[in-house]
Amino acid sequence: MKRTHLPLNALRVFEASARHLSFTRAADELAVTPAAVGQQIRALEETLGVVLFRRLTRNLELTPEAEQALPALQQGFLAFEEAVRLLQAGQSSKVLNLAAPRALVAKWLTAKLADYGRLHRDLRFSVNAHEAGEVDFTQANLDLAIHFGGEPQAEGIHGRTLGDEALVTVAAPGAGLDAPCIAHPLDPETPCVESALTLADPGLAIDAAAAGLGKTRVPALLAMADVAAGRVVLLEDGVPAGGQWWLTAPTPQWRQAKVRELVAFLTGAAG
């Protein structure tokens, strides 16, 4: 019989019945009625063209054919159980592989992962820098990726947002709105006539502002820790950022408890 035609549920019922030599005890194990067990056995006998049990007055007895096949069937179910265990062990790996923009890693993500790691001491994190474009989750063996912009559009990729984002203007304490501008790619429309300095990412722009090189307009999520530490101050209220931070992954990764739990923590931490 071809693999695609194997009556696996009926074989499971047969194995339990053969082990107990009782439809009633097999039904208790399988959480079904004895009548349902009997129906499955009769259907299996018809499908295979083999009598599996002799019905005696008080119990059951295996036919020679059933007795001969039972050990191989039980080994098969043990192999199924081992395969399921290996699949679950892979999904429950204690390593989380993430990709995120370098600025987000430096200014927000590492601190949040440290907080999360204190709650889950057995977890380990692997974080790769990823600035723009589509992420190859398979090649990079990623569980989760974070990007700034719009909702993911790639087929099979789903996301959760960290919430609405705003651009805020920050500078070193004592600096004013007349400070030189520091530009970066996430704010191509810096409201200055001319930028005194252009840097590769908003994290570097915040550090340059803290060093007294000017003011910069950056996503609020990236600036909050430096503002709280007093390294920079807010010069202007936030304006809509034109995008959000998205935590994204393919459908299979969202089935992993470790991914769902981390996403729930990060989305709560950003609120």
Results as ranks from 00 to 15, higher is better:
Pro152Trp: 03
Glu189Arg: 07
Arg118Trp: 13
Leu204Gln: 13
Gly174Asp: 08
Ala179Arg: 01
Ala111Tyr: 08
Leu204Arg: 10
Ala111Gly: 11
His158Glu: 13
Asp178Gly: 08
Glu134Trp: 10
Asp178Lys: 09
Ala129Arg: 13
Val170Leu: 13
Gly159Ala: 15
Glu151Leu: 12
Asp136Thr: 11
Ala140Val: 11
Ala172Tyr: 02
Val170Ile: 14
Glu134Arg: 12
Glu189Phe: 07
Thr198Phe: 15
His130Gly: 04
Asp178Phe: 09
Pro152Lys: 04
Ala145Gln: 01
Ala140Gly: 03
Glu134Tyr: 11
Asp143Gly: 07
Ala106His: 06
Asp164Pro: 03
Ala196Pro: 02
Leu162Val: 10
Ala208Leu: 05
Leu199His: 01
Leu167Gln: 02
Ala175Phe: 09
Ala166Lys: 08
Ser126Ala: 14
Ala114Gln: 13
His130Pro: 01
Ala179Val: 04
Asp136Glu: 09
Ala183Ile: 03
Gly174Glu: 08
Ala166Asp: 09
Leu113Arg: 05
Leu177Lys: 11
Asp201Ile: 04
Gly174Met: 09
Arg160Trp: 15
Glu165Thr: 12
Pro173Tyr: 05
Thr169Cys: 15
His147Ile: 03
Val168Gln: 02
Ala154Met: 08
Pro188Trp: 06
Asp143Glu: 08
Ser126Leu: 12
Ser126Asp: 08
Pro202Thr: 11
Asp164Phe: 13
Val135Tyr: 01
Leu109Asn: 06
Gly159Cys: 13
Pro188Leu: 08
Ala183His: 02
Leu113Trp: 04
Asp178Leu: 10
Gly149Thr: 09
Gln153Phe: 12
Leu142Ile: 05
Thr169Lys: 04
Gln139Arg: 13
Val168Pro: 00
Asp201Asn: 15
Asp143Pro: 02
Gly176Trp: 03
Glu134His: 12
Gly133Glu: 10
Ala179Phe: 02
Ala200Asn: 12
Phe137Ala: 00
Gly150Phe: 06
Asp122Val: 11
Asp115His: 12
Asn141Gln: 15
Gly149Arg: 04
Leu113Met: 08
Val135Asp: 00
Leu186Phe: 10
Pro152Ile: 05
Tyr116Phe: 15
His184Lys: 03
Thr110Asn: 14
Ala175His: 12
Ala154Lys: 13
Ala183Trp: 00
His184Arg: 01
Trp108Ser: 05
Ala179Leu: 03
Ala196Val: 11
Ala200Thr: 13
Arg160Leu: 15
Ala172Leu: 08
Thr190Val: 10
Ala172His: 07
Ala140Tyr: 11
Gly149Ser: 09
Leu119Asp: 10
Ala114Pro: 04
Gly176Leu: 06
Pro152Leu: 06
Leu199Gly: 00
Asp187Thr: 14
Leu104His: 05
Ala179Pro: 02
Pro152Asn: 09
Ala209Met: 07
Asp187Gln: 11
Asp143Val: 10
Leu204Trp: 08
Ala205Ile: 05
Thr138Asn: 10
Asp136Leu: 07
Leu197Asp: 00
Trp108Gln: 06
Ala145Cys: 04
Ala171Pro: 03
Ser195Ala: 15
Leu104Phe: 14
Val168Lys: 01
Pro188Ile: 07
